[in-house]
Amino acid sequence: MAVNSKKRAEWLIAQLNLEREMNLADIGARLTKEKPGYGLVMAVGAARLHAFEPEPEAFAEIEASKPERTTLYNAAVGKPGKATFYAHQIGSLSSVFKFSEACARYLNKGFWTKREVTEIPMTLVALDEVKGFPRLDFLKMDVQGAELDVMKGGEHTLSEAVMVVPEVRFYQMYEGEPTWAELDTELRRQGFVLHKFLHQKSVLLGSRRWKQFKPKSGSQLLDGDAVYIRNMEEPENMSDFQLKALAVMAETVAESHDLCAFCLTLLQDRGAIASHVLGHYMGRVPAEVLRAAEPKPESAPDAAATETEA
């Protein structure tokens, strides 16, 4: 019988016997006790989270609370140099790009443009230039259009990473915001390929009858969280640790059980894990992703016995 995701993750991490703790980063998310997916990895002591808070007072407040297994950096990551941060009253819309009023009108989100926006000057640094920052195994980012700049400035930091989860925009919300196509091209240039989407958000367009539609029936794609993984076409170029890290993140963040099994197969072939791990893992994955066991064929009657009876 399959076990729940927490127990399955704990069991998997124990079986993999990681050589070191993984380095994870979540750029653009306020620190909270609830950490999506990778919180399971941190909870069992298998990873450390690296987070950013550029505002001095907020940095001091978070640092004083001593978040568990977290290293905090007083910096803002993006395209190096001076920038203006447009702090929107709706925090999730804040960005270093100016909000597009034309976009808001089309998406039937006129109220977005009526909220206060405060312009805050700041200095951005490239991810590779952050003092003391380690090479990452995993990166999640939600920086409202600045994901491309983060990637361009973090090539060294991400040179051994196995998974990147960016928010990708299907419809541009900000003036001068890079397209998803540009971000995808940069991710592929750095050796990552699109694996899956964790979710996609659509909005309901306005019309004289828009209130007759169900709220979640909108058709216009807006954005979503995509999962990019290290290109696996030449797995011999990946270290044992990278394969183990990808197996863990596939299980916990992407919920891609087939990808986890793929990594475990490679590790087993290398003799890097015990031979029973893959089989035992398959006994723990959710039943709904597995084929039903085929019934064994009934034994054919013994020919000699049949002749005797006749």
Score class of each variant (00 low, 15 high):
residue 1 M to D: 14
residue 17 N to L: 05
residue 29 A to V: 11
residue 30 R to W: 10
residue 36 P to H: 13
residue 38 Y to F: 15
residue 40 L to C: 04
residue 41 V to G: 06
residue 44 V to T: 13
residue 51 A to T: 03
residue 67 P to D: 13
residue 68 E to S: 09
residue 74 N to G: 02
residue 75 A to Y: 06
residue 75 A to C: 12
residue 76 A to T: 05
residue 82 K to R: 13
residue 85 F to K: 00
residue 86 Y to V: 03
residue 87 A to C: 07
residue 92 S to D: 06
residue 93 L to R: 10
residue 94 S to M: 08
residue 94 S to Y: 08
residue 96 V to P: 01
residue 105 R to V: 15
residue 109 K to G: 02
residue 114 K to P: 00
residue 115 R to I: 01
residue 123 T to N: 13
residue 125 V to S: 15
residue 129 E to W: 01
residue 129 E to D: 15
residue 131 K to Y: 00
residue 137 D to N: 15
residue 138 F to I: 10
residue 139 L to D: 04
residue 146 A to L: 05
residue 148 L to R: 03
residue 148 L to P: 05
residue 149 D to E: 15
residue 153 G to Q: 09
residue 160 E to F: 01
residue 163 M to W: 06
residue 170 F to A: 09
residue 172 Q to E: 13
residue 173 M to T: 14
residue 173 M to G: 14
residue 174 Y to G: 05
residue 175 E to S: 09
residue 176 G to E: 12
residue 182 E to M: 15
residue 186 E to M: 15
residue 188 R to G: 02
residue 190 Q to K: 12
residue 192 F to P: 07
residue 195 H to I: 04
residue 213 F to Y: 14
residue 214 K to D: 12
residue 220 Q to T: 06
residue 221 L to P: 05
residue 224 G to C: 11
residue 236 E to R: 10
residue 237 N to H: 07
residue 238 M to F: 01
residue 239 S to P: 00
residue 239 S to E: 00
residue 240 D to V: 14
residue 241 F to N: 00
residue 243 L to C: 12
residue 244 K to S: 01
residue 248 V to W: 01
residue 258 D to L: 10
residue 260 C to K: 07
residue 262 F to M: 08
residue 275 S to I: 03
residue 275 S to T: 12
residue 282 M to S: 03
residue 282 M to A: 03
residue 285 V to Q: 10
residue 288 E to S: 10
residue 288 E to L: 09
residue 300 A to F: 07
residue 303 A to F: 13
residue 307 E to H: 06
residue 308 T to P: 00
